[in-house]
Structures are given as C-alpha cells and as structure tokens.
C-alpha cells in the first residue's frame, strides 16, 4: 500500500521540494499544512503514516504540534525537519519522542533514508 505523508511547514518552497522528492519515490503527500495548528487538525483528519514537521511556524510551533499529535496518537511517526537544530531544541524534540531530527537543507538521500527507518 502506498504510504501517505503529511507535510507541516510554513515555507511554500519546502512543500514543493519535499513533494517532488516524495512523489518520485512513490509516496503520497496526503496533506499540506502551513502552521502547527493546521498540522494537528490535518493529522486527526487524514491519519497519515508519517509527518514531516518544521519547528518555527505560525500559530503553534512544530514542537507543540508534535506534542499534541503524540497525545492524540501515541504511535504517530514524526520526522522533524528544521533549519534550527541546536542542542536545546533537539533535546526538547527527543523528550517528545521524536525519533528523527533532520536539518535543512535536505537532499533526496537524507529524506528517503529517514523514511525507511520509520516505516
């Protein structure tokens, strides 16, 4: 079955780039959320197999959104994808049970190998 992926990021550039990479490898992008709150709502609605989550975003940030998603679904699979990645932020992500933290920019290999570890 085709795996369904939700992208949560405030940059239209990242949506375009990620979608290209994912579709090339036969994943389905089932949703594009542009802030943390939209990300949480779309997760509940779409039940994706995996989420790519940015951190600094409008309304609620990616750490808070991940927390809400994990509270809703303890099995949720989230890959953090952020331009910011200092020890403090990575520590907070680890506490939330985020397994993979990728730093922007990204290439195809980075994305696909991260996904293969998750699903």
């Amino acid at each position: 079955m085709i795996k369904r992926i939700l992208i949560v990021d405030d940059s239209p550039i990242i949506h375009t780039l990620l979608r290209k990479t994912l579709e090339k490898h036969d994943f389905e992008v089932c949703g594009d959320a542009h802030n943390g709150r939209e990300g949480v709502e779309m997760y509940k609605e779409l039940k994706p197999d995996l989420v790519f989550m940015d951190i600094t975003m409008p309304i609620i940030d990616g750490l808070e959104a991940s927390k809400l998603i994990k509270e809703y679904d303890g099995q949720a699979k989230i890959i953090m994808l952020s331009a910011m990645g200092d020890d403090d932020i990575i520590g907070q992500a680890e506490e939330l049970g985020i397994d993979i933290f990728l730093k922007k920019p990204f290439d195809e290999y980075k994305i696909i190998s991260a996904i293969s570890k998750m699903i």
Binding site: S11, P12, I14, S82, A83, P105
Partner: peptide, 19 residues
Amino acid sequence: MVLSTVSEINNIVSGNAIT
C-alpha cells in the same frame, strides 16, 4: 515563489549559522 525562495535560503542559512 521567487521571493519565497530567497527568504527560505536566508532562513536556512541563518538557522544553520545560529545553531
């Protein structure tokens, strides 16, 4: 999209540097 590309590059450059 052109303006957003330049701002996203700056975002990633700054994010990496301040990290």
